[in-house]
Design a protein around this nucleic acid. Structure first.
Lengths: 248, 248
DNA sequence: GGTCGTTATTGACCCAGATCAAACGGCTTG
DNA sequence: CAAGCCGTTTGATCTGGGTCAATAACGACC
């Protein structure tokens, strides 16, 4: 793992293929826009940037200037308290938008770190606002993206506030599975990009508890796990775990 | 406590005093707008509505059409799972905006319930979007409001994911105190509008744990509590509790 | 291909907070 | 003013997940 204090390597690649050529159109910001409108979005994207595994896309405290669409790769966001405690606030994959935490304060309020070699599209925020004043569907969709982020966060609050360890992990796996599916990957089989510790941080558990829950799921025939490789054997079993358990 | 299944009493009062006359200007949507721009906002507000204690402003599943600014009163939002578990996702007070959870899905994803007799301003969302296409400062500010909601949610995730019971309650009290202060009320002394159970739900704790933490704080001379009346005696003591404890 | 640091698994023990239970205090209602 | 009902406090006990510790399995780098 490279030091996270290195200078961040920035690569601005030529923009031959922006949104209109991108196969993530349907998941990303262009969703629901007409061809003509997407063509306008092309001009918005100020560039691309590769972020190597372990490197930051941005850090808490840095000036906010743009939001980022993930072209490929996998990220986590986390918050670090002065006393050293930290919390992973989310994992993001291709087509998802990063950086909206900075809009309200003009600086970023969390860290965004690549969990594998990744590439993102830079969307300068001032220009996004300008274009979304002109293109109603873009405005609408951007608002939807922000709102869904709020709803997602509420889901995490629900998870952290009311679920037991195994329910949390089941919810986590099902969520990943569903998002991989939306991207054309197998719903049953995938590679976890994050460590047990990062999963634990996200789920409000210790890494040992995550590991034990994985082992338990395997014993019960719900999944098979080998390190970061997961195969879901009984998805409805996982769902059952979610809905019924500990209903009081 | 009235039944929450009653018909919601809606009262559309005449709009003699909208944003331009409202003393919450500086906390609410008009913040940062010029006099002229605020005058435009006046037309946006489609009406007011009184919501009696215990009644819903909106329910999960209802069509989303407007966001709401709290003119006076106090609300909670919560999510209810099929199995009966629920989670309070937030408490909102005068000047704060409710309903942004519905933007992404066109229906509300949580319940909003008045904790005291309250009054809200109805802001039809389609019109807000239209006006914010014309008024850049409004657009900017609305985006900031949404982004801050995301950041607030991250704070709650941090709280739920990493803090122990007493830290959570200390953070909660300090947050309330700070928000009351911003509204011109005493930072030291206030009335809790919510029950111990609702506090517990928000903080991921059982009501007994909340009650014990209150008693503990009182023993330690940090606060004095009598039922819902709270006086903060040692604010910096509460802050110390937050920053130092259990740093590993 | 061996070494070393990181990540994952598993076991033993412990504790913060949940659960169960009882009593009390303040509102509301008749 | 009495009766009831919540909401709150406090005590006793239990337990899920944290903590500590040892070992194993990778994978990156010489």
């Amino acid at each position: 793992m490279p030091s996270q204090n290195n200078v961040i390597p920035i690569t601005l690649t030529s923009l031959k293929a922006a949104c209109s050529q991108c196969n993530l159109r349907e998941l990303c910001l262009p969703y629901g826009l007409s061809e003509a409108e997407i063509a306008q979005l092309d001009h918005l994207v100020a560039g691309r940037r590769k972020v190597k595994r372990g490197h930051h896309l941005y850090r808490a405290g840095e000036a906010f200037e743009a939001i980022y669409a993930i072209k490929m790769g996998f990220f986590k966001t986390d918050i670090l308290l002065e006393d050293g405690r930290d919390q992973v606030t989310g994992f993001q994959m291709a087509g998802e938008i990063l950086g909206m935490d900075g809009i309200g304060t003009d600086f970023h309020t969390c860290n965004s770190i690549a969990l594998e070699d990744s590439e993102i599209c830079i969307i300068p925020f001032a220009q996004l606002e300008q274009l979304s004043r002109e293109v109603q569907t873009l405005q609408r969709h951007f608002h939807q993206v922000m709102s869904r982020e709020i709803v997602r966060d509420h889901g995490v609050m629900m998870l952290l506030g009311t679920m037991r360890a195994e329910e949390r992990l089941a919810a986590f796996l099902l969520n990943l599975s569903q998002r991989f599916t939306a991207r054309g990957y197998s719903p049953q089989e995938f590679h976890l990009r994050m460590t047990r510790e990062e999963i634990g941080s996200y789920l409000g558990l210790k890494l040992e508890t995550v590991s034990r829950a994985f082992s338990r799921f395997q014993e019960d025939g719900l999944i098979s796990v080998h390190q970061k490789h997961v195969r879901i054997l009984d998805g409805s079993g996982l769902k059952r775990l979610l809905n019924h358990q500990s209903a009081l």
